[in-house]
Amino acid sequence: MSTKTSILPVVGSHHRTLEVEVLRYDPDKDDKPYYQTYQVPCEEEWVILDVINYIKDNLDRTLSYRWSCHMAVCGSCGMMVNGEPTLTCASFVRDMPAKIRVEPLENFPVARDLIVDMDSFVEKLSSVKPYIIAADERTVEDGTFTQLPAQLADYMSYTHCINCLLCYAACPQVNLNEGFVGPAALALAHRYNLDSRDKGRSVREDVVASNAGIWECSFVGACSEVCPKHVDPAAAIQQIKIAATGDYFINFLMPWKKSKNTDEASSGGGK
């Protein structure tokens, strides 16, 4: 039951004041991180990122954080909000308690304030060769690849990753072992393994099916729970485990096949 005459939210209305505890750390000045508290007058339709922007614009210009698109596409504003890995542009203030704590993403070194150093992630991401590895060289004259809608559907959901790192912040195995290749990189490897144009599964398996790859995962599933794009990395990793197990035994029983690609089964029956 509402007395509002408009279905639109009342823009500019002061909704409530949020007490925001923000982790601050400047490696040049601070020995260790500390918390700074801000009182932020919020509007009904604000997301957490608006709160951080308000602090930056009106209360404290020294606060450092990453953001760009404000619409859950660029993946740069991931932070811990009350201990939960959160994409702050896609998380509403109205769903939050009166006091929130904002910290940089867990399981990454802090570069400054809410900014983490993501170099290790970029390294892991490139290690799984996230691009199409075709069976043979293709020239312009050969024309484009053809792909059926059903073959596209095989891997579509795994293309939605925006590298926001929430899954790495949520993953207990990343926390226990920083060398674990991790959810997003493995899900992206799976995306290419499932692509009918791709024949690179056995090449990727050097990293993907190593001890630091899929086998470090114990299927807790936190990655899939926090993923703002519903990529479901946990399912991707389990599916790779099954495929890699098949490949392992095929290579073991038929070593002469080792050099050949073994991904026909998952390529959606391309040409």
Partner: peptide, 13 residues
């Protein structure tokens, strides 16, 4: 526990 190291060629587990 195994660690991904870009300088070491990983081995299929």
């Amino acid at each position: 526990m195994s660690t991904y190291d870009p300088n070491v060629a990983p081995k299929v587990s």
